[in-house]
């Protein structure tokens, strides 16, 4: 398989005069071409920050990004602004969460699509652009009539679909979707996920899907990365992780959403809340909420270990170890 993106020890720290907030810490990931990886975790776990850091869209004066993120051998984090702009949208595009706000409210959608297309093809004729845009809009069940409209004239769901279509304009290698289907109803969401998967197979697109919805990951992703308090605590194939979560946090997440098949179980919730990211606990970040935490967990931070081929976990007791031991 073809390695598309290798994230190495990537950290994001927000700094202001009073304190530093460690939003993402030592993230490591290998994403192969054609993969679809779901990054899950509760709000504030650093999933969006990780993606925005990769895209270099965090405010430069307050966010410090360290580590490496090699996209086809080029480190995204140290490219010049011009080199980065070359990759943007043509190779790596993104769909944001708040679609209603993803377009300027005082410009027609068509005009914005033309401007976005022309970033990479400045001389492209209007007709050609609109034809291409219509093709991608059809993928999400919209037609050319949105060209003449302003964002306020469309519903949130429709704007979300326009945002997805816009991200597909140049058929990118890597598509980052940040909660991109969260605002849609389940029927539309299912439909769009299916369309996107078909497109991925046709074009061999790679997708990073940021969501807090486990069912979206189950339905549309091949791999999963679970984030907690800025750390990737578990990574692996979706099937393997769902069948046997190695990290207690993953198990907690899976226990709090209902399964369609199998026996009826009572849903559980994870007690407590995320730790303060400016004052992290000494040991494992999840220890204060972990039902299985031991003295070792509270004093010694667990390293991320490979517990099976293509599978990692940051827990003293994952894989080889045993909580009861």
């Amino acid at each position: 398989m073809d390695l598309l993106l290798r994230v190495e020890d990537m950290s994001v720290t927000y700094r202001n005069r009073e304190k530093s907030v460690y939003a993402v810490r030592n993230a490591n990931m290998e994403i192969f071409r054609g993969d679809s990886i779901g990054i899950v975790g509760e709000s504030g776990s650093g999933k969006s920050t990780l993606a925005m850091g990769l895209l270099r869209l965090l405010p430069q004066h307050s966010a410090e990004v360290t580590g490496r993120a090699e996209y086809l051998g080029k480190d995204l984090l140290s490219l010049s602004e011009n080199e980065m702009n070359e990759l943007r949208w043509k190779n790596i595009s993104v769909v944001f969460q708040k679609a209603m706000n993803s377009f300027s409210p005082v410009h027609r959608i068509g005009s914005q699509l033309i401007d976005i297309y022309r970033v990479h093809f400045p001389k492209a004729p209007k007709k050609e652009i609109l034809e291409r845009a219509e093709e991608t809009l059809r993928l999400v069940n919209l037609g050319e009539r949105v060209f003449k409209m302003y964002p306020y004239q469309l519903s949130g769901g429709m704007m979300q679909r326009v945002a997805i279509a816009t991200a597909l304009l140049h058929e990118p290698d890597l598509l980052i979707m940040d909660e991109a289907t969260t605002a849609l109803d389940v029927v539309t969401q299912g439909q769009i996920l299916k369309e996107i998967q078909q497109m991925e197979q046709r074009l061999n697109t790679t997708r990073i899907m940021i969501t807090h919805d486990m069912s979206v990951v189950a339905a549309s992703c091949s791999r999963i990365a679970v984030m907690y308090a800025g750390e990737i605590v578990e990574q692996g194939g979706v099937k393997e992780v769902f069948r046997a979560p190695a990290h207690p946090y993953t198990a907690g997440l899976l226990g709090s959403f209902p399964s369609l098949r199998g026996e009826v179980k009572e849903l559980t919730s994870i007690p407590g809340t995320l730790p303060d990211l400016s004052k992290l606990p000494q040991g494992c970040v999840f220890a204060p909420r972990c039902p299985k935490a031991t003295e070792r967990c509270r004093t010694e931070a667990p390293a991320t270990r490979i517990i099976a081929p293509g599978r990692t976990a940051a827990c003293h007791y994952a894989g080889g170890g045993n909580h009861e031991a």
């Binding site: 895209l55 869209l57 980065m84 702009n85 070359e86 990759l87 943007r88 949208w89 043509k90 595009s93 993104v94 944001f96 708040k98 706000n101 993803s102 377009f103 300027s104 409210p105 401007d115 976005i116 970033v119 990479h120 945002a163």
Partner: peptide
């Protein structure tokens, strides 16, 4: 605003 972030993500100058 988010729409400006979107435009930055497209590589627009």
């Amino acid at each position: 605003e988010d729409y400006i972030t979107t435009l930055r993500a497209t590589g627009m100058s």
